[in-house]
Each structure stands twice: as C-alpha cells, then as structure tokens.
C-alpha cells in the first residue's frame, strides 16, 4: 500500500543499534506517558470559554465534531478502513438521544449512553457484514449502509420527523442541576467534559497492544495473518468502538442544539468529517483537534460573507492537501521540523 504520504510519528524505523531489553522497555513505557503539549488543546478550550462567551454554541458544536473526527481517525487512521459512511453512526447516536428526549426521557447522560450503545450496535452489525471485503467494495458498502439508514430515517417520519427533522426535544438539566442555557455555557462544558473522557479512552486504546496490532493490520495485513493475529475480529472491534464514539458525538450535538435532522446521516456529513480529519492529519490522534476547529471556524466566518465561495476554497484546499501536503497540517509540520 502506498501510504508513505501518511508519515506517522511513532512508526519511525528503530535506531540502528539494537536496543538493550531495558532500553526497549523504557522506550515503550515512555510512549504512554503524557507529554506537555498534549495539554494544549484543553488549555485552549478553557481559554476559549472565558474569552469568547458569545461563541459558545459554535464552540460546543466544534467540540462534538472533534469527537466525531476522532472516531473517524480510529477507523481510518488506525485500522486503515476507508469509509464513506461514518455519518451512519453519528446519526444513529443523534436520533437515539433525540427520540428519547422527544418522548419524555430528556436525562442527558443516559441519553448519551443510549446513543453510544445504539451506534455501537449498528457499527457491530454492519461491520460484521461489510468488513469481509476490502477496497472499493468496502467503500461502496459503507456508503450503502449509511444511505440505507438515511432512507429508513426519511421513511420512518412518524418517529424521526422525516424531512422536517425531529422537533420538540426537551433535554433535562445535567444531574438535575445545570440547565442547557441559551448562551451555550452548559452545552460547551458538557461537550468538553465528554470529549476529554472519550479522548482518554481513545488514547488508551491506541497505545495498547491492541492498538499496535491494528497498526500492524493497516501496514501489512498478510504478515498479521501470518503471525496468527485475528485480523477480522480486531477490525470489527475497533469499528464497533469507533461507531460508538461517533454515536456519542451525534448525541452530544443533538442534546446541545436540541435538533436532529436527516443531514446528520447524509453523504456530506460522512465526507465532511473525512475532510476535516485529513486537513488536520490522519492517524495521529490529534489531527481532529487541529482540522475541525480550523475548518469550522473558517466555515463560520466565510459563510457569513459568501457561502458559495466557501465550498470552492475548501475543495481547492483538499486538492492542494492531496497533491502537496499529504498527511495534513501535522504531517506538514513534521516534515518542516525534519
């Protein structure tokens, strides 16, 4: 596979001199440790809360979309599954939380968990079906799964509101204390807390032996088969986990905006999250934290001026990223440093 464009920081060739066992152990242990710069996104998020109090609704959507992109990174960057249907899980989570809130269960935490569980279930079932194939067929099948869900949601308008969207969600205060206010304060902090927990979880997975074996599968499937790794099962597990996290992201947006619509399931949503992720950088766990805010803030600014041109420039940016800056912004900065 020609993936040389996707330089991965932790995949550099080992130093020439063989490591003494103790050194190797230290090197592995170091990799798990938190580094100072990993605190930056969180510091920035808290600073934004203080500095831009009138932009918190947008901020909450950015935080939830970062989680969505992070989940896509697990599938795409770590398991190497190119999907055009990741919105299926995002939408499932959103609709689950939304439908609960419309029908009298507006408790946010359980709604969030229900959205996560439903999306993980859909991820497991669809993954069990589609992960038998690879390449184009897999791409098509992920697309068809998402489109099927889209049509199902469109048709079940008694449940989902169809083209009009799900109206009239009533989300209760968090822990019975903190109302979702119009200024978006609660929503922002809620999204931030959930994103932080999910990020810890994702980080743990990526650095675990399971995460390393996924990277192995992505880099060389045959060898992983040869050494007896249960390739399909591992891919299915990460697919399910990522689907669950995408569902969490969808439920977050549903609860903070109080609305779910068919656009939560469409191709633009699936494509859009890939774009944001790739602008930031794939397979790095932090690409989402760079690509999503950049994309969404730029979109917010530009679309107030001229939304039509916005699409042109973002398209051009993608073409340029592919041709000149494979690996996104993180990849570019790594190359500049070298």
């Amino acid at each position: 596979m020609a993936t040389e464009g996707l330089v991965r920081p932790r995949l550099k060739p080992a130093p020439r001199a063989p490591l003494a066992p103790q050194q190797a152990i230290d090197a592995f242990a170091r990799r798990h440790r938190y580094r100072w710069w990993e605190a930056l996104p969180w510091a920035a998020a808290i600073a934004a809360y203080v500095l831009f109090p009138s932009y918190l609704p947008l901020g909450a959507q950015i935080l939830a979309t970062i989680l969505f992109a992070l989940s896509a990174d697990l599938v795409l960057g770590y398991a190497g599954i190119v999907t055009l249907g990741h919105a299926a899980f995002f939408g499932t989570g959103a609709y689950t939380a939304g439908i609960l809130a419309v029908h009298g269960w507006g408790e946010p935490i359980t709604g969030l968990l229900a959205g996560t569980a439903a999306a993980a279930l859909i991820g497991f079932v669809s993954g069990w079906i589609v992960l038998r194939t690879t390449g184009l067929t897999l791409l098509m099948q992920t697309l068809v799964v998402a489109t099927l869900l889209y049509e199902a949601a469109n048709k079940a308008s008694w449940l989902t509101g169809g083209d009009d969207g799900l109206q009239g969600m009533e989300v209760w205060p968090i822990f019975g204390q903190f109302r979702f206010d119009m200024f978006g304060r609660t929503g922002y902090l809620y999204c931030l807390a959930v994103l932080f927990l999910c990020w810890l979880f994702a980080r743990h997975i990526v650095y675990s032996p399971f995460g390393r074996s996924l990277t192995g599968i992505r880099e060389n499937v045959r060898r992983m088969h040869a050494i007896g790794a249960p390739v399909r099962r591992r891919r299915l597990i990460i697919y399910t986990i990522a689907a669950g996290l995408a569902g969490t992201a969808g439920a977050l947006i549903a609860q903070t905006t109080g609305f779910v619509g068919l656009s939560f399931l469409n191709l633009e949503r699936s494509g859009g999250v890939l774009i944001m992720l790739i602008i930031g950088g794939v397979g790095r766990l932090y690409g989402a934290f760079i690509g999503v805010p950049l994309y969404m803030i730029a979109q917010n600014r530009f679309s107030e001026i001229e939304p039509v041109y916005w699409y042109f420039w973002i398209g051009l940016l993608m073409v340029l990223v592919v041709v000149f800056a494979r690996g996104g912004i993180l990849g570019l900065s790594e190359r500049l440093r070298q």
């Binding site: 494509g271 890939l274 993608m318 073409v319 592919v322």
Partner: peptide, 10 residues
C-alpha cells in the same frame, strides 16, 4: 477519495 471530493466541492 479526497482529491475527487475536493473536485466535487469546487
């Protein structure tokens, strides 16, 4: 996928 999605947007 990215390149051609970019072309679609444009």
């Amino acid at each position: 996928v990215l390149l051609t999605m970019g072309l679609i947007f444009m």
